[in-house]
């Protein structure tokens, strides 16, 4: 036994040149695992990304900018931005309010509220879109009344905003609930005993404590709002230049064999994804730092 013990202590150091810790695998295994992970990443993520930009630029920069600058393409960008600009702030307000209620108070029906917040994640986006068609569509519950009052929701901008808001509903709340629960309410109580009112407590104590989590939720929410396809597709009606968001516009162009146009708009979405990832990393890094400090 003694011989075995000494050999495991001494030999690997002599063989590999560096001490082998208990949690470390031999070098060949490490290389193999890293290689597999990188290969997978390249095949499933980098290759398609490269393909998007490759296809978009296949006919040169001129064709690319012509496709991006097309009136319908620009209209789709504008609509996407409008949908995000409305749904993201709406979900920030709702998400903070919901997370505040859930994390700081206990009340009857709390777990039901948490489940409801998760609903958009659980339901297929197509169903989410259909819900609005069933409620607001011409044959829906409120359809006749809406037609009578000349309000258009389905196959119009309001429907797209509604569907986008619904689908992106959980991101901010989901990000904040665990964070606020972990932080507890003691700092808020301290602020109250020091004479702060509710508004001061929120702005000076609660919000600064959750700002990185909130920003992270906003970034994810925004990415999803701009990229959403299924739900928006159902309520949009695909009216070119009017109710097409960027993902829908990509689909239409692709179906018309306008590959350069489709990939050019897709490249804008891909760029958005890259920017999102960079922002996300920065926020995560700052968040980790503010926690470590």
């Amino acid at each position: 036994m003694a011989v075995v013990v000494t050999s495991t202590l001494v030999k690997p150091r002599a063989l590999a040149g560096a001490p082998l810790r208990a949690t470390q695998d031999p070098r060949c295994v490490r290389r193999l695992l890293i290689g597999i992970a990188l290969g997978f990443l390249a095949f499933f993520l980098l290759l398609p990304l490269a393909a998007v930009f490759g296809e978009a630029l296949r006919r040169g920069l001129g064709a690319y900018f012509a496709a991006v600058g097309d009136a319908d393409a620009l209209a789709s960008v504008k609509l996407t931005l409008i949908a995000a600009l409305i749904s993201v702030p709406a979900n920030v307000v709702f998400g903070v309010a919901a997370a505040w209620c859930i994390a700081k108070y206990s009340f009857r029906g709390k777990s039901l509220l948490i489940t409801l917040i998760d609903l958009p994640f659980a339901v297929s986006p197509v169903i989410s879109g259909l819900i609005y068609v069933l409620v607001f569509g011409a044959q829906g519950w409120l359809g006749p009344w809406l037609i009578e009052h000349n309000v258009k929701i389905i196959f119009a901008v309001p429907g797209i905003v509604l569907a986008t808001t619904f689908v992106t509903f959980p991101f901010v709340a989901r990000e904040l609930i665990p964070l606020m629960q972990a932080q507890g309410s003691e700092e808020e109580y301290a602020a109250i005993t020091l004479g702060a009112n509710g508004w001061q407590t929120f702005w000076r104590v609660t919000l600064p404590n959750i700002k990185w989590g909130l920003l992270y939720g906003v970034i994810l929410c925004n990415a999803r709002a701009m990229g959403e396809f299924g739900a928006v597709s159902v309520v949009s009606g695909h009216i070119r230049g009017e109710t097409n968001t960027m993902p829908l516009h990509v689909e239409i162009l692709y179906n018309e064999y306008n590959f350069v146009g489709a990939f050019a708009v897709a490249s804008l979405l891909a760029l958005l994804a890259l920017v999102t990832l960079v922002l996300k990393s920065i926020v995560e890094w700052r968040h980790a730092r503010s926690h470590a400090a």
Binding site: E187, Y189, A190, L194, N209
Partner: peptide
């Protein structure tokens, strides 16, 4: 609570961590 003029020190201090 805010108007009682009470100084309260919490068990885990509850200092405002970002200040």
């Amino acid at each position: 609570a805010g108007k009682r003029k009470v100084g309260f020190v919490f068990q885990h201090y509850a200092l405002f961590r970002h200040m």
